[in-house]
Design a protein around this nucleic acid. Structure first.
Lengths: 186, 186, 186, 186
DNA sequence: TGTTAAGCGAGACGGTACGTCGCGTCTTAAT
DNA sequence: ATTAAGACGCGACGTACCGTCTCGCTTAACA
């Protein structure tokens, strides 16, 4: 690994760790520099400002996602969410989510990074929907984009408002409503 | 109005204006003090820190919400959303939302204020659901809490990811899916 | 003493000490802040930048100067220089002098401060010259400004080039030449 | 010219130009490297640090000096100073002088270089003095070193304090006093 | 004439200090 | 007793140069 890439990686790792341990309020370029052994200057050579580093640190905490294919919409979604869910703490998840969502509102580059990260989630979901449409489970007139809103939205809302504990029963209930919405023919 | 209340009001008004004009990144206690003519000290006497002032400034931008009663679930929801929606700019809405959501993750008081604000929205929706259940439109076993997630979530998600322009057709489509989900009997 | 003046004084004292101990290369706003207990921000509230603080620290190391009146030019100058001379180390004197002289070349405000400090020295000398002219020791056509150049210059040059140890014999010799120059009638 | 010498020369030329155009505050190894096309690494291979490069850049702006021989002390000195004087701007002269004088205070190598440059001036002057002593114009007991202080000092002082415009009348006046000091028998 | 080692450019790195911004606290004088 | 005014301590920001460190590539001298 090139010298440059090594420094970058060390900084990013330290940033990710720091983020996990101290959360966004404790996330500081100065601290990242100190713990990583990478000079602050170098960090700023790789990221234009603290928020960008934060965004990448958040983004690289999002695991790569599977695109299950169980044969039914409900099975696929259930598989997807059971694969995705479990962060150590929902609160720190909420904090990171909101922190980055916020930063994205005033920085186009962060917004772009966020979109990329989001699409890593929405992509599989869209595929799931389209497979279901191919099978006839979901009517063809349903716009997959909106379907994604319907699938992701309720979970996001529940997490951000702190009203979801991600107990299986809750997830089941939500998924049931969502699947019903998608499969009902009108 | 008491002298104290007057200062508080002036500060809050200035804060709200500042928030609207410059957004969260430009929202500063120092600036609020300057534009309002209220001393910084005084502001800190009324709010424990900047985020609390911000939270209140955001919260008082949220208009009081109606609880429509059109006789059908779809009608009620449509009425509700058409009454609520369109702020000047979706972007500034997203910014304020994320900003406060973020602040709420590390400050319990703000979290409480946020919950209060959120419940001003979720309350009417819950009522709408319960009315629909009373009419038999929505099965009784549906937990109104989860129903609220289903109703609010998709819109929030679409707004935060910048994928909703709130054109009537989009809103219709989403509402269609949501209503289908809620009314389907399984 | 007002709070503000107190902070200023503490910073200035620390700056002066630091300058004496570590010289100009070790003179740092950050260090002044640390040793004085005055916040860096506050230092910058009192001085526009590091050089200005430096200039003041130097300037306040220059003791107030007497204007002797012994009745003869040579006696006056001898008294003046014997009162002024002995800094702990000629090297640190040279360093401070050159440092400030240099800073003055690119900063008008420092130049002004320097001029003030210089005039604290040139003033008494000019007076000495004028007294000597009144007594007839020095011809009337001699411009006191030039006379000051003649009096101060050789010492400055010798100090800056490190060729003066300020042994009495050296000083005597220089003063002898200077007095001769001033008193000769042409 | 060897490849190495060529790079050295290019760097030095660029340094000199940069110094003339932007003065010491704008004098930067980085900028020298950029404008000269010589890599920073190479520059550091030729000079141990920025100050040494600066010193050499200054030093090579000092023209070689004549040792006039007009037959009289006053004539010689007048010839010497008229040959030397007028740089484009006295201010930039003062800046370079003070800058190097300052650097010399904390770096022995620069001090040595400075001494060399200074001696290029003091040498001729000393010769002038000694010739004058041989002719009997200047008493034998005068130490040529001190005489040099007397000759150079006033001009240096006047330049550094910005009180000399080098108009002929000023120079004449100073020279008059200096010559008087040197030739007076006591 | 081919080989090799010294020297070069390019450019990132660790580091120190800079000067700035905003926070939340504190003091003082006026209302 | 509460306010306006404004300085303060603090922590982090992002920047500028410093002097160092690989890295390939050139080039000149030696085999």
């Amino acid at each position: 690994m090139s010298r440059s890439a090594e420094a970058r990686q060390k900084a990013l790792t330290a940033a990710t760790d720091l983020l996990r341990v101290r959360g966004i309020p404790g996330f500081t370029v100065e601290e990242v520099a100190k713990t990583s052994g990478v000079a602050k200057t170098t960090i700023y050579r790789h990221w234009p400002n603290a928020d960008h580093l934060l965004a990448e640190a958040v983004s690289c905490q999002i695991a790569p996602l599977p695109t299950p294919n169980t044969g039914s919409l409900e099975g696929d979604l259930r598989a997807f969410f059971s694969a995705v869910v479990p962060p150590e703490s929902l609160e720190s998840l909420a904090q990171m989510l909101t922190g980055v969502l916020y930063a994205a509102t005033y920085d186009p580059a962060i917004r772009a990074a966020l979109e990329e990260a989001v699409s890593r989630r929405t992509g599989p979901i869209k595929t799931i929907i389209e497979l279901a449409q191919a099978r006839g489970e979901v009517p063809a007139y349903v716009d997959p984009e909106r379907a994604v809103d319907l699938v992701e939205g309720p979970f996001l809302f529940a997490v951000l408002t702190g009203r979801l504990t991600f107990q299986p029963s809750e997830v089941d209930e939500l998924l049931g409503l969502i699947v019903a919405g998608l499969t009902a023919v009108r």
